[in-house]
Design a protein around this nucleic acid. Structure first.
Lengths: 144, 144
DNA sequence: GTGGGTGCAAACTGTTTGCACATCT
DNA sequence: AGATGTGCAAACAGTTTGCACCCAC
């Protein structure tokens, strides 16, 4: 979904588009590496020195609640965020820590369906293993 | 997998089966509700007053590392643990907080396979929504 | 002027760590 | 005795909260 479309959605809901919010949304769009809150904060505070961590937390929570972005909880110690909300899997490499988007066809469970009488609202299909890059390099190649 | 089989595995790997470890493993077997560390600790410290949180953490990490139990990271704020290691999905009710086991057939991705050149080692298929119990009760029925 | 948004710092929570003591072989 | 496991308390990291200030309508 394009940036403009998400911004339109915000306006439709009467949510103010502040500089900080725009910055976070744009950053997520440009960074497909599923950044952590700290990474978002560090990058943006270079441009907006007065930016506060609390604002980043507030903004991400707001976007998540309104379905503009997705939270990734594949690692228990910190949250990551994904601009893409179309259904897809996430692959975490336990060696280098990178998280890859993976498109998988033919999943038996889909959003808005039912399973065992429970209503499905959100899917978080996580996969953990060793990524192709680490497999090729053999050694313990570090993160990007 | 039966308790005895897991204990045998531990012994095969030369890992000592202490009272504390046995207690944690047995508790997980008997409690299918995917307890948190705190829940495990609270329950067991009633029986073993000297038990330490650190031991519970150590033990769970040990069991997880040796593939006897499974960590659930569907909630970002705390870890939960599951005695069942056979592949299955987890459903989190965002209203009452309960986590259900869900058996799903026909998933395109399986353990030990490959996806986009990455080697799959572990699957964590999480589903979030409203559970059948909460749907029936309509209101905001609390957790068990 | 009012309501919502931001920034700062303190508080909180789950988890990890360091170290002394205990336990098993 | 030596190695491994346990318990306690302090440290840590990510997140949340309370409150004063600021800005857009």
């Amino acid at each position: 979904m394009a940036l403009e479309e998400k911004i339109t959605r915000l306006k439709e809901k009467g949510i103010l588009l502040t500089i900080q919010r725009y910055a976070v949304l744009e950053f997520l769009q440009d960074n497909g590496l599923h950044p952590t809150v700290e990474e978002i904060f560090q990058s943006l505070s270079g441009i907006y020195p007065a930016l506060s961590r609390a604002t980043v937390y507030n903004t991400l929570e707001l976007f998540k609640r309104h379905g503009l972005i997705q939270e990734i909880t594949i690692e228990r110690d910190k949250a990551r965020y994904d601009y893409r909300i179309e259904p897809h899997h996430h692959f975490l490499c336990r060696q280098c820590g990178r998280i890859y988007d993976v498109d998988v066809e033919g999943c038996p469970i889909e959003k808005e369906e039912w399973v065992d009488g429970h209503k499905v609202e959100e899917l978080r299909p996580y996969i953990i293993g060793i990524c192709s890059k680490c497999l090729k390099e053999g050694g313990d190649a570090g993160a990007p």
